[in-house]
């Protein structure tokens, strides 16, 4: 198809102006104010004094807070990794299924994706609850004599996080595998490559764009996540998300909260940078021309 000829303009068209104005006024300026706040001093009654200081950043890099940041990074990494390990076979099954099965599975992935995440977290809380179905079944069949307390455990937080973010991983993986030319697998097999080698040397390198997109889609929101651990883990663990929220809702130290959130953006950017760097050096694609972005 020919490239459509697009008219060149000297200035942005009228159509673009409302959205441009909106993003300027409700996105860029507010983000600028977060920076300004992070460099200001806390006022006497929870307000802010525009008195330039780096103190908030100094405080934010204190050992206590760095440990909290580390817990968030660990949780987000575990979530992204689990979603990848579970999501890849899922996407593979979807991409290799017949058209009818494929669209049915796609709908089944999208339904939880669109279900309110508070509702989903609650459903897991109910399932694992002391009077929940797992315990009731186990008790009724005499498997256990006392209800097991799953609630407020790492297991329920893990299940909550993984099920919440799994669709974000599966959908990009599915898109990548859908485009994959499966005859390459046949070729590798004919040439005598063992199964694990085909996976590592052909399938994964060729679907890397999907893996990267999925990982970013999971890791970034998971890093700021605190509602799921809060609801399912019983607010035991302090994470970046509740630490920042507390500064705005409870202690009302907005400058400090702003500095923490700037650091959070830094952590997100740095983690993704490291991740992209690692994935760029490992397994260079067999044939880059067949891999679309």
């Amino acid at each position: 198809m020919l490239e459509p000829v697009e008219p060149s303009l000297r200035r942005p068209p009228l159509l673009a102006l409302p959205a441009m104005g909106w993003f300027m006024w409700f996105l860029l300026i507010p983000l600028g104010f977060v920076v300004v706040y992070s460099l200001s001093t806390k006022g006497l009654y929870g307000g802010v004094v525009y008195h330039f200081t780096f103190e908030n950043y100094q405080r934010a890099t204190d050992w206590i807070y760095l440990r909290i940041f580390w817990s968030s990074v660990k949780l987000a990494t575990l979530t992204a990794f689990s979603c990848l390990v579970i999501g890849y076979p899922m996407a593979y099954v979807m991409a290799t299924a017949s058209l009818r099965v494929r669209s049915a599975l796609l709908v089944l992935v999208v339904i939880p994706f669109w279900t309110n995440f508070v509702v989903r977290a609650y459903a897991i809380k109910l399932l694992f609850g002391e009077a929940g179905p797992i315990n009731e079944f186990a008790l009724a069949f005499g498997l256990i004599h006392e209800p097991i307390v799953f609630a407020n455990s790492d297991l329920s937080v893990w299940v909550g996080m993984v099920t919440n973010y799994l669709p974000f991983m599966v959908l990009p993986l599915y898109v990548a595998l859908e485009k994959f030319d499966f005859s390459l697998l046949e070729a590798a097999k004919d040439l005598g490559a063992p199964g694990w080698k085909i996976l590592l040397k052909v399938l994964i390198p060729m679907t890397k764009p999907g893996i990267i997109t999925g990982t970013i889609f999971v890791f970034t929101p998971a890093l700021g996540e605190f509602v799921i651990p809060d609801l399912l883990g019983g607010a035991k663990t302090m994470l970046m998300g509740n630490l920042i929220t507390d500064q705005f809702v409870k202690t009302r130290d907005w400058p400090f909260g702003s500095a923490l959130s700037m650091l959070m953006i830094l952590v997100v950017t740095a983690s993704l940078g490291v991740y992209l760097k690692i994935s760029a050096t490992e397994n260079a694609p067999v044939d880059a021309t067949t891999v679309e972005d």
Binding site: L27, P30, I244, F248
Partner: peptide, 20 residues
């Protein structure tokens, strides 16, 4: 810029708007 709200942690957008 139109992609920024998609990739930024939601919590940052939330508190930025609160401040604003």
């Amino acid at each position: 810029i139109t992609h920024v709200p998609l990739i930024m942690p939601e919590i940052v957008l939330g508190l930025a708007l609160l401040i604003w």
